[in-house]
Amino acid sequence: MTKIPIADIKAMPEYQELLRRRRRVGWLLTAIILTAYFSFILMVGYTPHLLAIRLGDGITSVGILAGLGLILLTIGMTAYYVWYANRYLEDLVATIHDRGL
């Protein structure tokens, strides 16, 4: 394993920018998925009648819609993060690699 110049890398603006961006998007998306999923689970546990409310057509329930919505949200979030990483993070990582070793 190559020895990493720790202090030099920590001082690099690109490295700090990478951590700042990654933490921000990471926390934001983690908070969204945790909130969405556990609100759903708590509703199933405590207020199932709210999920049983019917929508306009009188058949589809809020619960079914919320459930399918969660599946789509999960896929959408992973797509967003991978897009974000390619767009903003990969270049920073590449720069750090160029200068870091």
Partner: peptide
């Protein structure tokens, strides 16, 4: 650093 950047 290695975890975040892949260096090494």
């Amino acid at each position: 650093i290695r975890a975040q950047t892949g260096l090494g």
